[in-house]
Write a protein that binds this DNA or RNA. Structure first.
Length: 582
DNA sequence: CTCGAACCTG
DNA sequence: CAGGTTCGAG
């Protein structure tokens, strides 16, 4: 692995260097590292409460990201998803894990019964158990919704990344240049938007000019990036033929707002409801799922000790809970409208700012805003077809947009500062992943990105995470199979009698593996899934299906559809770290 | 138990 | 090529 050649001290210039077992290391390739190191960093900023003590490695300029073909593709996907969502049908019956499900749709083939070596594959085998699996017609709505949610969260990450970049620039600045540049920036800000007046009376009113400028610039940054994405969304959501489209009715909005968060309805339309109560409400799982520290420490991450715990009960605190007022305030913020929202919200401090209570942005060492300038430059070259700032009536903004804004809210809620982004997976992350396994056996990479917000994803990181889950599954299935065979030997006849309870051996084995220390209450849902897995294995073995090399695949297919939502708490910033010490 | 390598699949 | 599974080594 390339990363291994790099001195950790270089990768983590600050005290953040994390000693990782080699397996956790994931490549920051030399090129990227070099790029990061080349990042100008002239003056050491005066110690500041929220000053960041090390350059973070960011491989890509956020803007570049948007131009990245890969992201374009993603964007295109989001667009098509949204297009699907704009259809008049009613979203219900959210499927469990559409992605995973689809992924496993295909396993029809088997391998040549060759000892040891997996070589050619022989088609077919009438998948016995798999037949139970529901027809594929899961609503594309649900799927789209879920994917959109993931995409949005990814967006959130990008936003944060942007901030990070921004801070970097600030850090790297020469104090002398500072004032001059800030004035320059302010000038251009003024040229671009006439937002300043409002802001001057805003919450930054009492602050130094430079700080206010920074504030403006930052907001603008966010607005620019956001508007780009929103643009594509809007274009899809408002197809030409719907020109005069009135705003969505309140009901619709509400409905979507709830669904917009894409929480799946409690009861799943999972086909495999049959045995036991597998279709049982997730609600059962979520509240029960508690890690000692996970639930309450979401906001306790302290940045340089400045900020002390604002204990947020992150569980059950969902994005969808942001009120319209909050949304509008967020939008105002993003757009740089100051607090006098066009949506008529009052001048309350934004929930975001309140909750964050983090002085970080304002305490930054002030510097030039190269990033900003460069973005402005690019913007001139590629003017945005539709800037948010140009939207005449914010009320027309679709709920989709609001959901995007709610991400900003989430960011605040999570109290995740860009500096907390990690470039490598830590043991804490591993632990977290294991716990997540109790909810999802087949997470998509997008979902992973959503839940490891403190990780800067690279291809390597992503595949590492995926590999982790693959390993988890491997272990899981091996254990279950073992117990299934054992049960068979013990003369069990009825598969249905095989239930995994908290005191069964199988559970103990699994718990030991994924939840060492037992500091997490395993969701009941997992027990159901395990029970079903056990039964499936049992039946399959009893039926002699294990003669077929790919006899497990139908089982995998079934299990892959039983993923649950992962509690929001897992997104919490300090989560991984907290877990480590719990 | 874990992980890397090999191998499969869409 | 990305995401999965299987296998064997330590």
């Amino acid at each position: 692995m390339v990363g291994r050649n790099l001195d950790p001290a270089i990768l983590f210039p600050s005290s953040q260097a994390v000693a990782l077992p080699h397996d956790y290391e994931c490549g920051v390739n030399p090129g990227e590292a070099a790029q990061a190191l080349a990042f100008p960093r002239t003056s050491a900023p005066a110690p500041m409460p929220c000053a960041r003590d090390g350059d973070q490695l960011s491989n890509q300029h956020p803007r570049e990201q948007l131009c990245d073909p890969h992201l374009r593709a993603k964007r295109a996907r989001v667009e098509s998803i949204i297009q699907g969502m704009s259809l008049p049908s009613t979203p219900q019956a959210f499927d469990t894990s559409p992605e995973a499900a689809v992924r496993h749709e295909r396993e029809r083939d088997s391998e040549m019964p060759q000892e040891g070596k997996r070589k050619p594959r022989v088609p077919q085998q009438g998948m016995g158990a798999a037949e139970q699996v529901a027809p594929r017609g899961s609503s594309s709505h649900a799927k789209g919704c879920r994917q959109l949610k993931e995409q949005l969260c990814f967006l959130e990450q990008q936003l944060r990344w942007l901030q990070e970049k921004f801070y970097q620039v600030c850090d790297s600045e020469n104090a002398a240049q500072t004032q001059e540049d800030s004035e320059k920036v302010q000038r251009s800000v003024l040229e671009v938007h006439g937002l300043e007046e409002a802001e001057d009376r805003g919450d930054t009113g009492g602050l130094p000019l430079a700080v206010r400028v920074l504030s403006q610039a930052l907001k603008h940054e966010l607005a620019v990036v956001t508007s780009q994405v929103v643009d594509s969304v809007l274009k899809t959501v408002w197809p030409k033929e719907q020109h005069g489209l009135p705003m969505l009715g309140p009901d619709v909005r509400r409905e979507y707002s709830a669904g917009g968060k894409c929480r799946k309805p409690l009861a799943k339309s999972s086909p495999v409801n049959a045995p036991g109560s597998l279709g049982s409400p997730q609600a059962e799982v979520l509240p029960g799922a508690s890690v000692k520290s996970l639930g309450s420490y979401a906001g306790s991450f302290s940045s340089k000790g400045v900020r002390k715990s604002s204990r947020v009960p992150s569980m059950g605190y969902s994005l969808g809970s942001a009120t319209p007022v909050q949304h509008s305030q967020l939008l105002s913020q993003l757009l740089g409208y100051g607090q006098h929202s066009l949506w008529g919200s009052n001048s309350h401090e934004s929930p975001c700012a309140l909750e964050r209570g983090c002085p970080e942005p304002l305490n930054l060492h002030w510097g030039t805003v190269k990033l900003r300038s460069s973005i402005l430059r690019q913007q001139q070259h590629h003017p945005l077809p539709l800037s948010l700032a140009n939207v005449e009536s914010p009320a027309l903004l679709p709920v989709v947009l609001r959901d995007m804004l709610s991400l900003e809210f989430a960011m605040c809620r999570l109290s995740l500062t860009p500096r907390q982004m990690q470039e490598a997976l830590t043991p804490g992350h591993l632990k977290k992943a294991k716990l997540m396994f109790f909810f999802t056996r087949y997470p998509s990479s997008t979902l992973l990105k959503t839940y490891f917000l403190d990780v800067q994803f690279s291809r390597c990181i992503t595949s590492q995470l995926i590999k982790w889950f693959s390993n988890f599954r491997e272990f899981y299935y091996i254990q279950v199979e073992k117990f299934a065979r054992q049960a068979l030997l013990e003369g069990v006849v009825d598969a249905c009698t095989l239930q995994v309870s908290r005191d069964s051996e199988l559970f103990r084995a699994l718990n030991m593996h994924y939840n060492k220390g037992n500091d997490f209450e395993v969701p009941g849902r997992f027990l159901e899934v395990a029970s079903l897995t056990l039964q499936e294995f049992f039946s399959a073995v009893r039926a002699g299906k294990d003669a077929d090399p790919s006899w497990k695949k139908p089982i995998y297919k079934i299990i892959s559809k039983l993923d649950s939502d992962i509690p929001e708490g897992f997104k919490a910033a300090g989560c991984s770290q907290e877990l480590l010490h719990s």
